[in-house]
Design a protein around this nucleic acid. Structure first.
Lengths: 331, 331
DNA sequence: AGATCAAATGGGAACGTTCCCAACGGGAGG
DNA sequence: CCTCCCGTTGGGAACGTTCCCATTTGATCT
């Protein structure tokens, strides 16, 4: 079907080498030649074959963006979208394309895992398989890990300051006069959980408040779970006057429970979220939250990945992106 | 770096052909051979090279999911995520990977557009360039168009019944006793606009209601625009008692305006959206909306695309997925 | 006019697979 | 014991590029 560079060469009278150059480095070919070559190409419906090019160049100009299958619908997760978007933008600037895949390990017949496509680099976000990362690195494929830390040598991990973010959220509630502060902890990766939970506990202790175990609920990070958990908190004899939710979706669920109980936000119960995902501006009142700069995360991950692809050695192996408290109307 | 099939062959004493078969069709190789081959492969860190395979097989096992750049942040758009997810799932079932790209045309040096990667098929969603679709088809690459209709011969277009959906929404409001019904029309593609707009108008006419031009606002399909437009509607002397929004995000914005005006939903103003995106369940009260089965759209598109890839001729060239009214608390 | 040099072009060998065809070996059947 | 056949195995030719190296061309300089 597809005509090849040789067909074009024959038709226009130049060699395949020259035709190749007319596409790969047009400046090195005379105008006259280019004219003829492009005309021939057009009449033959020729377009360069990226696979063949990748074959000889030993680079595909593709990277993969890998998300955790278990966190699926993860693409849907408002958390990942802005990151992916940044990755796509940065990749496009460099003429790279991006595969989006789940981290479903692929088993070879011999039982080895491997990632079934050729690519120049991989960004993992969230939970990631150590096996497959190891495998990739055996193949000398650069890897960047996002929103997660894995204890592998020379592995670049980019995360955000979950701990500090949680502290700032609780401090904020304290400053607004709240003393009975609940925690709805949606569980993501153990690391993230722990950091955000610890931030909550430490912030309270530092203010001299005691931890009320009844105020702490460990739940799925979903809207439904947030709503359910909040309902339970509201039924307590001494209900909390403020609740810190470890993501925005949970916070939105919590808000529902409050509103349905006929209470006002923030007058009766203040709510604060985490992530500053798109959800935070959809709800009414708009959600006070701890902002993670997703765009920066995506951008940084891509930049660093390309540094690695180009063989630029990296100095730091852990990058922490600071969070920022965004005060809106829910607190 | 990477060791090749030949290295493995040398090491284990079998031919490259047999090694190849040990991966591609394990059943045709004796147990003894496989054992030796896999052992050799493991010690050499060998993994099959997908590019080389694609080269000779003349198929990449990749498809592309192309979204409109102008609708970016489109990945973020809660509308696209579930579709992409279905596409990924269906592709993974067939051992295919998916590129996610924007429909930014790529210009060859000769001024021709082309899509810069090799792939077995492409799904366009939303606005799509006729030029690039034409180009792809010259290369015999199957194309499916989602949520849009382009008048090209033998081009499979999958859409939803925007018109009927709009009618059912307005009918629903009418049945609930509303007579003053507004329209917030976020503009997407002209087709979608027109269909939903026409549905609104026709439904009203059929009920014998007259069209009040003041009740119709043509706006950007964003939260902000929805809020602003709704505020204006509320300022009218005779404000509408119900508003049909042509997507959920606009509806969420409209809800904000109503709540901030101190009015109740649905008692004072009923709101109805379109899409049944994730937004519809985040807002409080939850949004009555016209459901589009995104999962089915994505699934169907992928199935049809694979039919085309496998050379199965298709009978129908237009598929319309029915919408369904989902009544929740906002109406 | 001859020498020199840069710009433009061409030929052939990779790149790492799969696939076609051929060959080999051993067990079953006559 | 010979033949046939099937299960395995191997050799070589693709697949469509790029890149190295060599050659040609034409212009500039002395």
């Amino acid at each position: 079907m597809g005509s090849t560079i040789i067909d074009v060469a024959k038709k226009c009278g130049y060699s395949k080498t020259t035709v190749s150059r007319a596409y790969a480095e047009p400046d090195s070919v005379s105008e006259k030649a280019k004219l003829k070559i492009y005309a021939a190409a057009k009449s033959l419906n020729y377009a360069p074959n990226a696979i063949a090019r990748a074959m000889v160049r030993q680079r595909t100009e593709n990277i993969a963006f890998v998300i955790n299958e278990k966190q699926s619908p993860a693409v849907l997760n408002p958390f990942y979208s802005p990151i992916l978007e940044a990755v796509m933008r940065e990749s496009a600037r460099r003429n790279y394309s991006v595969f989006v895949m789940t981290n479903q390990d692929v088993l070879l017949p011999n039982g080895e895992v491997y990632i079934k496509k050729q690519m120049d680099g991989v960004i993992f976000v969230g939970e990631a398989s150590e096996t497959i990362i190891g495998r990739l690195r055996e193949q000398k494929i650069p890897v960047v890990l996002l929103n997660n830390v894995l204890d592998m040598p020379r592995l670049l991990c980019i995360t955000t300051s979950h701990y500090e973010g949680a502290v700032s959220a609780v401090d904020h509630l304290y400053e607004r006069g709240h003393r009975k502060i609940g925690l709805l902890a949606g569980h993501f990766s153990p690391q993230v959980n722990e950091a955000r939970y610890k931030g909550y506990v430490d912030a309270l202790s530092r203010q001299g408040l005691e931890i009320n175990i009844q105020y702490i609920l460990d739940i799925e990070p979903t809207l439904e779970a947030g709503k359910g958990a909040m309902s339970r908190l509201l039924e307590l004899e001494e209900r909390p006057t403020a609740v810190f939710c470890t993501n925005d979706t949970v916070a939105a669920g919590a808000m529902k429970a409050v509103i349905r109980a006929g209470l006002r936000i923030p007058e009766d119960v203040a709510i604060i979220g985490f992530d500053d995902s798109s959800v935070s501006r959809v709800v009414e009142p708009e959600l006070t939250t701890v902002r993670i700069d997703m765009d920066q995360m995506g951008r940084l991950a891509t930049e660093k990945l390309f540094d690695l692809i180009e063989g630029i050695p990296f100095t730091e192996t852990r990058i922490v992106i600071p969070t920022e408290l965004v005060v809106r109307s829910s607190s």
